[in-house]
Amino acid sequence: MKIKHVSISILALVAALSLSGCETTGSSPEVSGGNVKYGDSKAVETLTNEFGSTDLQTIAEAMSRSMVQSRVIIAGNRPLVTVSEVKNKTSEYIDTKSITDSIRAQLLKSGAVRFAVDIDAMKTQTDELMRQNNSGLYKKTTQKKVGNMQGADYRLEGNITSIVKRAGDVKDVYYKFSLQLVDIENGVIEWADEKDIRKTSGR
């Protein structure tokens, strides 16, 4: 008797599942198997207290907003900046390149700053120049000349540090991201700012 009951309820469950599975297809511009959804890419993420997307976004936003207010940029002559290294001094795998990329994108979009290729992109840049000039494959008039690359006026550099503490079930992480803008010719720091973030998690 019991077994029969169980099997009937399993049957019902299977039927219910197969019925509900069909509903999503066809009637809307979504083909979905159930548990995957697109979410708000700007939503506040607090799944774990490791460095996350919200931290990246808020740091990039705070830094770029602060930098466009600096004196050298307000002056309005759109200085040329290059991104140097942001050192990761935490023991978490944080891709600081991805943070500086966001900062650079926002600054470029604001129109207040121009950027020169950084060291990482240098090889691609010189390779391209060399190919145009040395391969003999390109039309003379369209060849980009060697020796016209512009030297940056300022260098953007910084670091990210963290303090992690655990006590019992509570884990507290404090991140500090500092960034500075250095005049390459005279070594003067023209602007610097910090953004700190505290994340605490309890079990």
Partner: peptide, 23 residues
């Protein structure tokens, strides 16, 4: 991980690799 990131020129990711190994 540290060595691979270093080989790829990604120092900010190489550092935590070595640091974790030390820890």
């Amino acid at each position: 991980a540290g060595f691979t990131y270093e080989a790829l020129g990604e120092k900010s990711l190489a550092a935590p690799g070595y640091r974790k190994a030390m820890e």
